[in-house]
Design a protein around this nucleic acid. Structure first.
Lengths: 250, 250
DNA sequence: CGATTTTCATTTGTCAGACATTTAAATGTC
DNA sequence: GACATTTAAATGTCTGACAAATGAAAATCG
């Protein structure tokens, strides 16, 4: 594990890269302990703070975990699905938020991916997954529900659908697509009428899942996609109208 | 922006979390400059090295970029698709490598997601996308190609298919699924016969895309999935056989 | 002898202060 | 006005130190 003394990049970045490569390539086994900070500093011929900055970079990516005390140190971390979800969601949310991705584009991607799960989910979903979909659909029909709670329940519903495919890799990939849509979805105010239509479509999906009819699930998802896009468009149009009424710079 | 003095977590992790939340929530605008390290240290009542560790954590997630010199500092970074790809691929690769994900599970997820793009890609692909698919298919038919080059060309082919959907969010999501499969795919030795079959299916896909026949694209992808799984199974079986022949512990 | 407590070395977490390096703006010069 | 120089501000890096945690080994006690 060496670093290039001629590189212009920060030493801490170089060191982090060297260790990261060693982990990804498999040279460093899972749960194995890295040398102590003092040893690393000596090996790389840098000071301890520089090594620490490198280790923090790796910790931020959940590549290592650190433990204090004697026989503590930095250990190669087993990346859990949970951690991977969170990284994926954070990255996806930022990507959508910072790159002016249109609602339609994000929506289209999300439902396209979700339809990919429909076939597997209809086939493999357990009674538990179906029950969750039913419960969340009922919750969404409650009149007093806040917009945030409605959105959260919506996520839970679709999460159950995706998890029904019984493929953790698929669930992981979808988590980013579905959860990252949340901030965009939260911009929509759900009227009683639109909620009713969404509940109707969720019921369709649950019914189709119960009948293990994957084509019907996919069809209902497409309908939901169309409806969601339309809803967003009318909400944004109304906001634009209001902005004009208030003057362009309110 | 405050930190909890009672928390057990590292100060640098707390500070990184506080700034991260501010960025995600939108309180810190893109390209805006954070206070200098010295100011942050004073604000959070910690030392500069601690602040630096926090900033390195954020830099590792591409949330900020730093610039040296007068009027330099840490700036809220615009997360590019490129950076997001790389994070996603790294995370996905590690997740697959460290959690004993079976080849079949990863393969299933990958092709399910890819089929999700098939409809859009068949509809929207440009002549360029089609040309790339053709070129890569031809390359794969060359006899002298190494296994690595064959795999790389395979990725390029599927990348063109996915990009044909003309939805950057979809491309981003798929990048993780397709590229993360690379290490698993590299474990397979592609014989002349299996390459021929893959080239045949790729030709099918390109033909179907040329005819804008999305159903045929999806069907060919399913066939390719089945064939890939079978191929992997036979390769793994052969390796297991060889291991037994050499004695269990070689 | 066994169980418990104490000590202790090791390692990370944090701090303070210093110097080197980079960078762009401000200033001076022709 | 164009170009060279100075300068201030910021990050990058180093040194040295102490605090806190932690598990192992040693010491103590029943």
């Amino acid at each position: 594990m060496k670093i290039d003394p001629n590189s212009k990049a920060d030493l801490s970045a170089q060191i982090a890269g060297a260790i990261r490569d060693a982990i990804i390539s498999g040279a460093l086994i899972m749960d194995s302990r890295l040398p102590s900070e003092a040893e690393l500093a000596e090996n790389f011929a840098v000071s301890r703070p520089t090594v620490r900055e490198a280790l923090k970079r790796l910790a931020a990516q959940s590549l290592i975990r650190t433990q204090r005390g004697a026989f503590g140190g930095a250990f190669v971390n087993r990346l859990s699905y949970e951690e991977a979800y969170n990284h994926h969601i954070t990255t996806s949310t930022l990507l959508l938020g910072m790159n002016g991705v249109s609602f339609d584009t994000a929506c289209e991607a999300r439902f396209a991916l979700e339809r990919a799960c429909a076939v597997l989910s209809a086939e493999r979903r357990t009674p538990d997954h179906l029950a969750t979909m039913r419960v969340e659909t009922l919750r969404q029909a409650q009149p007093g529900l806040s917009d945030e709670a409605f959105c959260a329940s919506d996520v839970a519903f679709h999460r159950a659908l995706v998890d029904g495919a019984d493929n953790p890799v698929l669930s992981y990939q979808l988590a980013g697509a579905v959860e990252a849509m949340q901030p965009l979805m939260n911009m929509i105010t759900f009227t009683a009428r639109s909620r009713k239509e969404i509940v109707r479509l969720h019921t369709c999906i649950a019914d189709a899942s119960e009948a293990r009819n994957s084509a019907a699930v996919a069809e209902a998802l497409t309908e939901l996609e169309t409806y969601t896009k339309m809803l967003a468009q009318s909400v944004f149009a109304a906001k634009a109208q209001a902005a004009i009424a208030d003057g362009v710079a309110p």
